[in-house]
């Protein structure tokens, strides 16, 4: 159509359709309001323009009108809020059985590691129609992972994990941007997300993953580092059993309960004494400075792989807008 004049970004994820409809709703409301205001100003300006022999009629105001034009917009805005909140809630609740990819951002590149093993730089290959969750951290400053075609964006912070998920719906190659200013080559911190049909993805995966899956590498590392001398598969070990721990609540020695998510596991590897599991002594050595971010991701992937596979009731990612045709048909 217009090669040089794109008007609408490609919509290539399940979020994108919902977001586009929300955006269209907001745009319609805004255009109607703007046109109304412009038109009323124009009409008043012309109709009541200054003429000899005509005086202005003084009007004090109207309580009814004031209340009306306060409440009515508020009602419409609460609709916007609700629509946006539902989408945001979905975006922040990754389905449990999604494929996971670890992302490490640094000035100025994206390093990605698939659970199955392949590593990429500034490139991300994902299968179509599959939930993908990104678990992201930064080595230096704040970055932001942004794929316009998926309508997803999340800041990537140092010292902490943030997550983002999407389900690509359309094969193709899309922009990956860093959206948070991160220094000199901020605008060079860009890459591509390639969405592939399942078959192609499998083929790519086997060709790109000679070294085994991330969890497998993690297992090797787990043994190399000697983690398995304490973390046994039965309760005899000096450390807690790790099987099935991921994603579940953990009772701590000080009475608190935390969820064993990526951040908790990361902290437990780097700063074991911070949150010691109830019934265990804080004897685990710290691995700060001894394992790098990528190895951490491998270890976490391994610990996650110890969970029994999810049984059905995963959070569905279906967007309410899913039944409507994508606006990219425009």
């Amino acid at each position: 159509m217009f090669d040089n004049l794109p008007l609408w970004p490609t919509a290539a994820s399940s979020h994108a359709r919902y977001e586009d409809w929300l955006f269209i709703f907001l745009t319609v409301v805004s255009v109607v309001m703007t046109v109304l205001i412009f038109a009323v100003i124009a009409v008043f300006a012309m109709k009541y323009r200054r003429r000899h022999g005509r005086e202005a009629t003084q009007i004090e105001g109207s309580l009814l009108l004031e209340i009306g034009w306060s409440i009515a917009p508020l009602g419409i805005m609460m609709l916007m809020f609700a629509g946006g909140a539902v989408l945001y809630f979905i975006m922040r609740s990754p389905p449990r059985d999604s494929a996971q990819v670890y992302v490490v951002a640094k000035q100025w590149m994206w390093k990605l590691q698939h659970m199955e093993g392949p590593r990429e730089i500034n490139q991300l290959h994902v299968p179509v129609d599959r939930d993908v969750e990104l678990i992201m951290t930064s080595q230096d400053v704040i970055h932001s992972f942004y794929v316009p075609a998926f309508r997803v964006k999340q800041d990537v912070l140092p010292g902490r994990y943030t997550t983002l998920w999407f389900r690509a719906t359309k094969p193709g190659t899309y922009h990956l941007f860093c959206a948070q200013f991160c220094g000199t080559m901020h605008s060079g911190m860009i890459g591509e997300v390639t969405v592939m049909e399942s078959k192609d993805y499998q083929a790519w995966m086997t060709s790109a993953a000679p070294s085994g899956s991330l969890a497998q590498t993690g297992m090797t590392l787990f043994q190399q580092l000697g983690c398995n001398t304490c973390h046994l598969n039965d309760v005899q070990g000096r450390g807690p059993v790790l099987k099935g721990v991921y994603g579940n609540p953990v009772q701590l020695g000080d009475g608190r309960t935390v969820t064993a998510d990526e951040n908790y596991i990361r902290e437990s590897i780097l700063v074991p004494a911070a949150k010691v599991v109830s019934g265990f002594r804080p004897i685990m050595p710290s691995w700060q400075g001894q394992v790098n971010e990528e190895q951490l991701n491998e270890l976490i992937a391994y610990i996650k792989s110890l969970n029994p596979p999810p049984t059905g009731e995963a959070v569905t990612a279906g967007a309410p807008g899913g039944t409507t045709p994508p606006p990219s048909a425009k």
Partner: peptide, 20 residues
């Protein structure tokens, strides 16, 4: 308070906790 008394036999871990 810092739970260090229980770490005496693990120098690496002790060191890290101290740094923290």
């Amino acid at each position: 308070l810092f739970g260090l008394d229980q770490l005496q036999n693990d120098p690496a871990k002790l060191q890290e906790r101290k740094a923290e």
